[in-house]
């Protein structure tokens, strides 16, 4: 599954922080990339390829994703942007024939390391889906706290505190505080999606992946989600896949353009939309194809 054999063992980073003088200066340090580890970078992705069976979906993608900023992934349908997003929290592994090569590090740690449990990765890297999917058998409050409860947190005080905090962060608290025990399905589409965001926030992830979170919502609900994303980037790293070019331009700091499984261009959003370096990018963002 993981071909990154030359990869730095995860313990190395811990050693570094424990005894900085020793490891840093070692002349035979095996990995030149190690210097790039900085808190400003959330993901370092190196030569990532993903295939399902014989079908290769992503080819040799390398990029760094900045922490506490919004990175938009754009590209026509089938370009691999959803697969890219899912490889960041190992959700693509749910497909039986999935294979991945390359490296993905989250704040320096190889999330595909042999000793890393994908369940733990997903606690650090949350996800919001295109179709809002609150659990229908649970109330609003139960939906928010489900990630905590099913991971063994029983303390009522903690649950109550996280419930309120998460709903406030998701800008939903004022609308639901009087009916926390109502069915989650009684909410409107936009509210349901913000509930899903609150649910993802409640487990306190470091990164939130969003797969076209507003594509099924009306313009007003979309605006609310976008404002929310701009608000959340103060505390979280956000990677968002979107089909909506204006949305990418409005909310993201960096934009990556994918085409046919390859990363065509990756730069500051302003540059991608005003002065792209690659002709294909320009054609796509100006609506000439895709």
């Amino acid at each position: 599954m993981n071909a990154s054999t030359i990869d730095f063992p995860v313990q190395m980073n811990r050693n570094e922080s424990n005894a900085p003088g020793q490891n840093m200066q070692k002349p035979n340090s095996p990995e030149p990339e190690a210097h790039a580890i900085a808190p400003a970078t959330a993901f370092q992705i190196g030569k990532l390829s993903v295939s399902f069976g014989a079908h290769t979906v992503l080819k040799d993608v390398s990029l760094d994703i900045k922490a506490r900023s919004v990175t938009a992934i754009i590209g026509p349908s089938g370009c691999g942007k959803s697969t890219f997003l899912r490889s960041l929290n190992r959700m693509h592994e749910l497909v039986p024939d999935a294979r991945m090569t390359g490296t993905i590090r989250l704040f320096g740690e190889n999330i595909y390391g042999p000793e890393i449990d994908p369940v733990v990765v997903r606690r650090r890297v949350g996800m919001v889906f295109q179709k809002s999917n609150p659990f229908p058998t649970m109330s609003i409050s139960e939906n928010v706290t489900v990630g905590l409860r099913l991971n063994g947190i029983r303390n009522k005080g903690i649950l109550q505190e996280r419930l309120e905090k998460s709903l406030k962060m998701a800008a939903l608290w004022d609308e639901v505080k009087d009916r926390l025990n109502a069915a989650s399905t009684s909410l409107s589409g936009g509210q349901q999606q913000r509930l899903c965001i609150a649910r993802a926030l409640a487990v306190e992830p470091e990164v939130i992946l969003m797969d076209e979170p507003a594509s099924a919502l009306d313009p007003l609900a979309t605006t609310k989600i976008e404002e929310l994303i701009l608000d959340l980037k103060k505390d979280f790293t956000i990677v968002i896949v979107t089909h909506n070019m204006q949305q990418a331009a409005r909310i993201s700091d960096q934009t990556a353009f994918f085409y046919l499984g390859e990363l065509v261009e990756y730069a500051a959003t302003r540059k991608i939309f005003t002065n792209p370096s690659v002709k294909q990018t320009e054609d796509y963002v100006t609506g000439r194809f895709g």
Partner: peptide, 8 residues
């Protein structure tokens, strides 16, 4: 997917 993505 939603449950697994929560680290459950």
């Amino acid at each position: 997917e939603a449950a697994l993505a929560l680290g459950i």
